[in-house]
Simulated scan of single mutants.
Amino acid sequence: MKQALKVLGLVLFMTMVSIGLIGCASDDESKQDEKPAQEQEQNQEEQGSGQDSNEAAFPVTITDDSGEEVVIEEEPERIVSVIPSATEIIFGLGLGDKVVGVTDNDNYPEEVKEIESVGGLELNVEKIISLEPDLVVADVNNGESISQLREQGIKVLVLGAQTLEETYKDILTAGKATGTTDHAEEVVASMKEDVESVKKVVQDIPEDERKTVWIEIGEELFTAGNGTFLNELVQTAGGVNIMSDQEGWPQVSEEEVIQSNPDVIFLTYASYVENAVQKVKNRDSWKDVTAIEEGQVYPLNSDITERPGPRITQGLTKIAEYLYPEKFNQE
């Protein structure tokens, strides 16, 4: 998710972190023959349009993650997403052709680079309104902009997942809001399969043999504690976060890390800090840390380990492969 180094950059980063198949099979022919001709024609039209066969009839009423009751009168045809995780959800539901606005921070899928931008951390509300969206998908931390848009009569669906379970819920909510319930259920089912596959591989690892992990989200030694996606992913992947006894995104001392002697080190900033992995390996005071001695320092792609969207379980799998390569047939 997002990529600024110094303390101010880390504060912005953590703000961003806190912010971002196929239809059902038809009945068999014998049942179809028993249906009135008019109903069969309606079913054929729905299948031909590519819509979900169990699409909820509009209007739909949804209580979003801001606690607001959102009534969507008709299936949205023009969607603006103001957080990368929401953009990935909307595209994951097969609605990319309906997206008319995204943010400067969006980078996946590739098509988003050709879509109109509505700002970055600071949204251009006037620009969003000018795009005449039927639906804006936002995050709980877009607070003021959400209020401004709603005051202008724009429908805003607010998401805000902080866990895997909440991510599933947000995807299903987005599916209901856009008439893609079937597709949303399939996406969630696939994600749950990813999670179960990882759990099955690591479940028999004894507690005293599980790898201990230091998660570094900045060279000033900010880390991910309890209540973060990274902590949940590391634990689900069979690892032990050495800072799981702390909440949120604490900054810790070098001595604390060295004393904890992690087996593995993950860096979330390596994509925008040159030679980040090598710099950590070259820390003289860390030379006796197990992860350094054994070369177990890895870059993590924050887009797939911190964005609460369909790819978050890919991030889980990657973490598990780094922790236990021998169990995941990795060299």
Rank of each mutant, 00 (worst) to 15 (best):
V71F: 11
V71E: 12
G96F: 01
I128T: 09
S117Q: 15
N54Y: 06
E88K: 02
P109V: 01
E46N: 09
T63V: 13
V137W: 02
E114W: 03
E46Y: 11
L121N: 01
D134C: 05
L95E: 03
I79H: 02
G96S: 03
V125Q: 10
D97I: 13
T87D: 01
L131F: 00
V82H: 06
E73L: 09
E74Q: 15
V112A: 04
E55L: 05
T61L: 09
T87H: 01
E55D: 11
T63S: 06
E74P: 12
Y108M: 14
V137P: 00
L93H: 03
R78Y: 04
N124G: 13
E75K: 07
Q40V: 11
P84A: 15
I89H: 04
A56T: 11
Q38L: 08
L93N: 02
G96V: 02
Q38K: 08
V60G: 03
D64K: 02
E75M: 10
L95G: 09
T61P: 10
D97E: 15
D104M: 14
V125Y: 10
I62R: 05
L131E: 00
D104K: 14
T63F: 02
E39A: 13
Y108S: 14
P133Y: 04
L95T: 07
D64T: 03
I83A: 15
A57M: 12
G94A: 15
D52A: 01
N43D: 13
D134G: 06
E126W: 06
S81A: 09
E116T: 04
E110I: 10
L135Y: 08
Q44P: 01
L135Q: 08
Q40N: 04
A56G: 04
I90R: 00
G94K: 14
R78K: 13
S85I: 15
G67V: 08
E116H: 01
E55I: 04
G92R: 05
T87W: 00
N107D: 13
V60Q: 05
L95A: 07
V99M: 05
L123S: 07
K127S: 13
E110F: 11
A86R: 03
K113M: 04
E114N: 15
L95S: 07
V112N: 00
E46T: 14
N124M: 14
G50S: 10
V70T: 08
E132Q: 10
D97W: 13
K113S: 11
Q44C: 06
G67W: 06
F91H: 04
S81F: 00
E116Q: 02
N43T: 12
K113G: 07
F58L: 11
E77H: 07
G48D: 12
Y108A: 15
K127P: 03
N43G: 06
I115H: 04
Q51V: 05
I79D: 00
I128R: 08
E126M: 06
E68V: 14
T103V: 12
V137C: 04
P109D: 05
P109R: 01
P109W: 01
V80I: 03
I62L: 09
Q38T: 07
G120Q: 11
E111A: 15
E126G: 09
E132I: 00
V137I: 07
L131A: 01
E77V: 08
Q40D: 01
E55G: 03
S117T: 15
G119M: 14
S85C: 15
P84Y: 15
T87S: 03
S53N: 12
E39W: 07
